[in-house]
């Protein structure tokens, strides 16, 4: 019995090492399944909670065009959450359980969404920075070892690039506008820069799951690798906009062909992860309220479907 198990594990490892995708019905180690369910459901929750800070500005967007764009973006985030929930379900996770874990606080989501959106410029900063960081994280996930997750990420990445561009365009419009608008853009940049760098997760030496996830090819790059790439990509874009990166230690390092950047406030990071960010409670309350207030719709739809099915059965019986 034990021998068979070892054999399966070896076969699995060999497949992953050869970049052969793992599909739902294939044998996989329990820990691999668990890690994926945790990561994919967290990712799904992030998409869903991520609608809230932006949804805050739909009714106050500065023009009909911006409103339509923001609405489409928020709708995309809902879609991304749904792709990911269904990918997690292929591993045996139940949708209701995942939602319950989000609402009880047992499941985490990206801490970035626990920060408030104080001005319209925050919507630009989110698209440009937060979605930029998300893309950096997500592009390698298109090659992740679990098939349904990789396929969901391909769809997500295709749609995400519009999100980043619309954010950049908002920032560019503000930066080319009146001094007050430029100031708004800079203030939003100051608010979002550091939390965005935290999105890549703890430093490599403090990221307990990274090594195993890299071996299983769930992750392709470490947190610090992706964070460095992000900084190197964003600094020239900030310069183009005429914005100042809020980091006095930021400087070009010729030897490593990248930027050195200042110390991230990890106390803040862990505090927000533990539920003490500016908006943690509000975000979960909003989700729970939506779930509760929508319960009657879900019940009614089910009752309607059952009644209709019953009627069709009766009709078939009468005809027979």
């Amino acid at each position: 019995m034990e021998e068979v198990e070892v054999n399966l594990e070896e076969q699995f490892e060999a497949k992953v090492a050869k970049d052969i995708r793992i599909e739902p019905k294939d044998w996989m180690p329990d820990a691999y399944r668990k890690t994926l369910i945790r990561q994919i459901s967290q990712h799904a929750h992030s998409e869903i909670v991520g609608m809230l800070p932006e949804g805050n500005w739909i009714t106050r967007a500065p023009s009909l065009k911006r409103k339509a764009i923001l609405l489409a973006k928020v709708q995309d985030e809902a879609g991304h959450g749904l792709y990911l929930y269904s990918a997690a379900e292929t591993l045996g996770a139940s949708r209701d359980q995942m939602i319950a874990d989000l609402h009880s606080g047992k499941a985490k989501y990206s801490s970035i969404f626990n920060y408030p959106t104080l001005s319209w410029a925050d919507i630009g900063a989110i698209g440009w920075l937060v979605d930029g960081a998300a893309i950096m994280n997500q592009v390698p996930l298109c090659r992740t070892s679990y098939g349904p997750y990789a396929r969901a990420m391909v769809r997500v990445c295709k749609e995400e690039s519009f999100h980043q561009r619309q954010g950049f365009e908002i920032m560019m419009t503000l930066c080319n506008g009146a001094p007050e608008q430029k100031k708004m853009a800079q203030e939003a940049f100051n608010r979002w820069w550091w939390p965005t760098l935290m999105m890549f997760g703890p430093k490599d030496e403090e990221s307990p799951n990274t090594e195993q996830s890299m071996r299983w090819r769930i992750k392709r790059f470490t947190n610090d690798e992706l964070r460095q790439r992000f900084v190197d990509m964003m600094v020239p874009q900030a310069e183009f906009l005429g914005l100042t990166v809020p980091d006095k230690d930021l400087k070009w390092n010729e030897a490593k062909n990248g930027y050195d950047y200042g110390q991230i406030d990890w106390d803040e990071f862990w505090s927000v992860v533990k539920g003490n960010g500016p908006c943690n409670k509000q975000r979960i309350q909003t989700r729970v309220k939506a779930d509760q207030e929508g319960a009657w719709v879900r019940e009614a739809a089910l009752a309607h479907a059952e009644k209709r099915a019953q009627r069709e059965r009766q009709k078939a019986e009468q005809a027979a």
């Binding site: 879609g79 749904l82 792709y83 269904s86 396929r151 309607h304 479907a305 099915a309």
Partner: peptide, 23 residues
């Protein structure tokens, strides 16, 4: 292309339109 939850077939087709054919 993927999966989704719906109460019946008609709703599943509508949800599929919203989730999988936005573009």
């Amino acid at each position: 292309v993927g999966s989704l939850h719906a109460a019946d077939a008609e709703m599943a087709v509508q949800n599929a339109r919203d989730v999988y054919t936005r573009r």
